[in-house]
Write a protein that binds this DNA or RNA. Structure first.
Length: 419
DNA sequence: TCTGGGGTCCTAGGACCC
DNA sequence: TCTGGGGTCCTAGGACCC
């Protein structure tokens, strides 16, 4: 049996830990640049504040109802998260940290899992001060469904166990397909079109081949999870990341190439640092720049370029250099996004013909030198994505799909006009 | 001018998660 | 004026090889 421990409105409740007076008040936490709401308490939700709502649209509402509004403080959240993980590990040896506010626990050998779940909840509340919901079930998918009910129906006391088949039937029957873990709008719509509306109908749908056809292998795996067949086993022990990204929205237009260069270099060095921490090497970098997708008045701009290493490296200097060269490629060739075979160039490792990039930027040079000092030899491995966003980026990653292919731009001088 | 078929590897793009 | 920042997996189709 597995359990999912999921913090309630995690970022908000981290802020509340230091503010006793906010216990009953609605709280929200804003994204980078205070752009939009990324966490909200139950009270804030009751006021009609949606996840991802742009702050300028809800500011008045917040002021009127005395909502406590915080800028995000990720180092705090990471720290609290680590404390919770430590506490959980003392209770259960085999756990998988799924995200900053969630962990799966292996409850094998524990006799009364439901009362154990209640104990976990009480301990986290007592030791950390964080309210959590606990969902118990034979698979991750059923744990997720249990948690869904625990959060939705307060009379459950924040802990729901789906050990028994009857209880599974009961919960899944009331659960719309698009609320299933791994099924969202897109897949949910496909299921609706096949006449499948609830999680229970999905679980009991007999034609596996049809599910395979409309939702691919992933859909079948999700279906099995609901049937109690494990498709996604617990992965204890930290896996290495396959892609490391660093990106930031500027919150204002950017008109200076050197600002972009600085930013790219900073992202690249952060990525390189993380890369070395997990003892991997980089096989290539790619950068991405785009203008504000919400702006209707201006012409949109989106470009990306990548650089492949002939020899994978963990050398920060080379990674920064490759990222800057990719930027230079965008500058020189105006490489268009969403074309197959997007600008992949092979970096000659010892090629010092660096297009004179570093002359522009003394602090960059310093950073590069500093980072080059602490190289270490590590194993061959993973791919790196250095991503850059310029102007104001989209709220949700998947919205990029809706982005129309931009006008081809050949020169850097045209870029500012687009921002 | 005619012009096979099978296998593998790679990657862009789609869909989803927190 | 102002809309986050990370990740994962799968598939189709192209490139390439024999």
């Amino acid at each position: 049996m597995l359990a999912l421990v999921d913090c309630d409105a995690f970022f908000c409740n981290c802020e509340r830990l230091f503010r006793e007076d906010l216990r009953q008040r609605p709280v929200i936490v804003l994204s980078n640049n205070d752009g939009c709401a990324i966490s909200r308490t139950r009270e804030a939700k009751a006021l009609g504040i949606e996840m991802g709502a742009p702050y300028f649209q809800i500011r008045e509402l917040c002021e009127r109802h005395k909502v406590a509004v915080f800028s995000s403080n990720f180092s705090l959240y990471t720290n609290i998260s680590a404390r919770i993980t430590t506490t959980l590990r003392r209770l259960v040896p085999n756990i998988e940290v799924y995200s900053v506010d969630e962990a799966f626990l292996d409850l094998t050998g524990i006799p009364n899992v439901e009362s154990f779940g209640r104990m976990i909840k009480a301990i986290i509340q007592q030791h950390i001060g964080m309210p959590v919901s606990v969902g118990i079930g034979p698979t991750k998918g059923l744990c997720k469904a249990a948690c869904f009910l625990a959060k939705q129906d307060l009379s459950q006391g924040g802990v729901v166990s789906l050990e028994e088949r009857e209880k599974q039937d009961q919960v899944l029957a009331t659960m719309p397909v698009e609320k299933i873990w791994g099924i969202a709008k897109g897949r949910g719509l496909k299921l609706w079109m096949s006449g499948i509306k609830t999680a229970k109908e999905f679980r009991d749908y007999k034609n596996d081949q049809h599910i395979q056809a409309i939702l691919t292998k992933v859909g079948r795996q999700i279906q099995d999870e609901l049937r109690g067949i494990v498709s996604f086993p617990l992965q204890a022990g930290a896996e290495k990341k396959k892609e490391i990204m660093s990106s930031r929205t500027f919150g204002h237009g950017v008109f200076d190439k050197h600002v972009l260069m600085q930013s790219i270099a900073t992202h690249a060095s952060e990525v390189a640092q993380e890369l070395r921490q997990q003892e991997s090497v980089c096989t290539g970098v790619s950068i991405f720049i785009r203008s504000n997708p919400f702006s209707e008045s201006t012409e949109q701009y989106a470009r990306s370029a990548s650089w492949k290493f002939q020899t994978p490296t963990n050398n920060t200097f080379k990674i920064i250099k490759a990222a800057l060269r990719a930027l230079e490629m965008i500058y020189v060739y105006g490489v268009e996004y969403q074309k197959s075979g997007v600008s992949v160039f092979n970096l000659q490792d010892e090629d010092e013909h660096a297009l004179g990039l570093f002359e522009h930027c003394d602090s960059l040079r310093e950073r590069v030198l500093m980072d080059t000092m602490d190289r270490i030899n590590l194993r061959e491995g993973d791919r790196i994505l250095v991503s850059m966003s310029c102007g104001v980026d989209n709220r949700e990653w998947r919205m990029r799909r809706n982005f129309k292919s931009p006008r081809y731009t050949t020169s850097w001088e045209e870029l500012p006009k687009c921002l």
